[in-house]
Design a protein around this nucleic acid. Sequence first.
DNA 1: TATGAATGAGCTTTCATTCAT
DNA 2: TATGAATGAAAGCTCATTCAT
Lengths: 229, 229, 229, 229
Amino acid sequence: MSVGNSEKDLSERPWRLFDDESVKDLTPRQRDLLEAALRVMSAKGFDGSRTREIAKEAGVSEATLFKNFPTKLEILMALLRPFLSTVIRPTMIASVKQVIEAHKGAPLEETLREIMRDRIALFRARGPLIKTLLLEAIRHTEIRDMIQKQVVPEIFSAVESVLDAAQARGELAQRDRRTTVRIFLSTVIGYLALSESFPEQLGASSDEVEIDAMVGILLHGIQGRSEKT
Amino acid sequence: MSVGNSEKDLSERPWRLFDDESVKDLTPRQRDLLEAALRVMSAKGFDGSRTREIAKEAGVSEATLFKNFPTKLEILMALLRPFLSTVIRPTMIASVKQVIEAHKGAPLEETLREIMRDRIALFRARGPLIKTLLLEAIRHTEIRDMIQKQVVPEIFSAVESVLDAAQARGELAQRDRRTTVRIFLSTVIGYLALSESFPEQLGASSDEVEIDAMVGILLHGIQGRSEKT
Amino acid sequence: MSVGNSEKDLSERPWRLFDDESVKDLTPRQRDLLEAALRVMSAKGFDGSRTREIAKEAGVSEATLFKNFPTKLEILMALLRPFLSTVIRPTMIASVKQVIEAHKGAPLEETLREIMRDRIALFRARGPLIKTLLLEAIRHTEIRDMIQKQVVPEIFSAVESVLDAAQARGELAQRDRRTTVRIFLSTVIGYLALSESFPEQLGASSDEVEIDAMVGILLHGIQGRSEKT
Amino acid sequence: MSVGNSEKDLSERPWRLFDDESVKDLTPRQRDLLEAALRVMSAKGFDGSRTREIAKEAGVSEATLFKNFPTKLEILMALLRPFLSTVIRPTMIASVKQVIEAHKGAPLEETLREIMRDRIALFRARGPLIKTLLLEAIRHTEIRDMIQKQVVPEIFSAVESVLDAAQARGELAQRDRRTTVRIFLSTVIGYLALSESFPEQLGASSDEVEIDAMVGILLHGIQGRSEKT
DNA sequence: TATGAATGAGCTTTCATTCAT
DNA sequence: TATGAATGAAAGCTCATTCAT
């Protein structure tokens, strides 16, 4: 079942804030501010954070903060933008191609595992962001819309591609694709939510082990048995 | 796989706020206030809600609000308390007994379906609560502790009982029980989160259909194949 | 210098609240309320006291409190009224007559001593009142007027009578009478203020000793008499 | 009896708020605020004063007020601090040296007179402060402690020095020094309390005349000196 | 008469945001 | 450009007082 897989520690993946091109146009000052904001907001939430503290954390005055980001909400959005673009791009897309190109040797299992691994690693690396910021963000219409329109479709279509490819190879039971995607995503998201919110309750088994188990359960259900019962 | 099931519309189940005994000791005024608070906080979140607005929504003065609930946080907790006690009691426990007593005829499948059905119906009926309040609540240590200590263990042990019974009947593949439980819960929670947060994105298929699909996938994975493929 | 005088302990004099006729028209309920109010206000001051607490201390509802005293200030005034009438009547007047009738044997010295003794005993017995209530009360115009118009003149004229009598007997240097009265009163009031506000700073010598010293100095001066003259 | 003394009008002495070095570190804005606070609090007392009014009186917003003084109590303390430091410093100490250095020519009488003069002038100049603020302040433990620990001992020891010097020169009757000090202070404090609280009642004689009388009585007693002794 | 419940008016304090320098 | 200083607009909470029962 296991993988004997590459990554030593998922949390060591090089996910860092502001290293992709979608952030190119930020000044160093803005970068500092966003990093400070991330620190503060992660710890205290959006409403719980004070612009004064963010400014101090960044070593500038509040006036400067507001010259760079016209409102507090704008800070949150600026913080989320690169994150969201990161969430949906690299591996997500890469994985799809990987799947399509790698058409032999348990490809679906490996692909799903890799997708999970990658996304979970991203969330672990961005723990503070996902744990707090995203929750905060969901309450703000602007941001929820952003996610709804830009992120969710991308994710869905990426995963759907993977499943399409697998189904084309006969690896999948006949089932509604959207539902299957949703269940896959539900599993990952639910796992993340649970493990972030109540880590103690969930025991100490590693992400790797859990990923193996989740993929195992998902796969063998997805692939089969509907006829057997 | 099929449904042939009773409930036409899950959202018509009679889950209502404050109808269980754990709330008997609320005055009508307090009930009004909590209902108003639920409305406001659901729409605007905890920090985003103003006591003044809650009071107005309930048709009383702020002073009256604070005479009934000494702090704003206390309102949130009073709101959550009956909800949490409802989450973990009725069907959750009932299901367990059901499983243990019904030892023939696809019992696990039906039990899991029923648990999902029941919990999802509860969440649908309490939509506002889950959609916002619970998310809000999680940020407050007092409430997170409450959930962590009182709710999570109950839920886990209830589901574990079901699985134990199934395993005793040979219906389950050999797997770490806690992980399996977690995946089951992850699936449900992830589904709820997704469907509440981004309903449009997820299509319009009914909860019933989704439940069938989820159970199907979960079961056939859980039950088998780990030796196969 | 000393007196070998009667009173064992000044603080045992029977000054009690509400035992004089000026209070006859209070109902028992009102008496309870005033006693409760005295306790609370003495401890916390006027502004610091809550009508709620006073009512609870008296074992009645706030509504009842307000049925008996239409405003909070009215409570304070009701509290002060019997006190003030006590301050200026009994011994004050008695002393005057005493002086006038006792025209032999160091009368002035003894009279002053007795006045001091009596007033100090009263203040000691009513410690809470003087210590806090009076200070509070002075801030309220209504009460300051009450004192200014009813109490101060009485006190002055009483002491003036004593001095007049002494002067008639040649016991007094020629001096402005009002000034002398004021200095006498200043001495007593200053002593009380000091000893109530900063008791530790003033050492532990008894009122009796201090009274002797004060009378001694008043009569003969710092430079005079104790043995030197 | 009289003095032929310098000061025409005691109240013209240059005691002003915030002109000593202990206040150097106040910004002009803070100075404005404290002056406004003094005006308002003098008129209405501490509890009776509204931060809103203080701010308006100073011509700034409440927000500005609270940026300068983090709490309302802090305003009171800032107001009292320079006052208290003034009370105990200049002449108080100077007088001591004066006494010790001036060892001939009615030194005690003149010294006491000068101390009284100086302190009374200070209180007159700071009338509003003493009349209300100090009374208010005494109710706050922090401030009472401040006075008890910093001010009272200084005052006592200063006056004691004067008396010690006089006694060394044989100008004093043998008496307990602390008691004598207390009586001296009682006289001054009582005089101030009376004259501030009930000025009309006390006639219109000037401070100078009263000081002469008080010193006369303190030194020689009611019975003494004016033509007798 | 006594009260539980209600409240208007107000409190101190906070904070995102602005602006003169 | 950067900021110290200022602030309007609340926010949560309190309290003396009222009133229907």
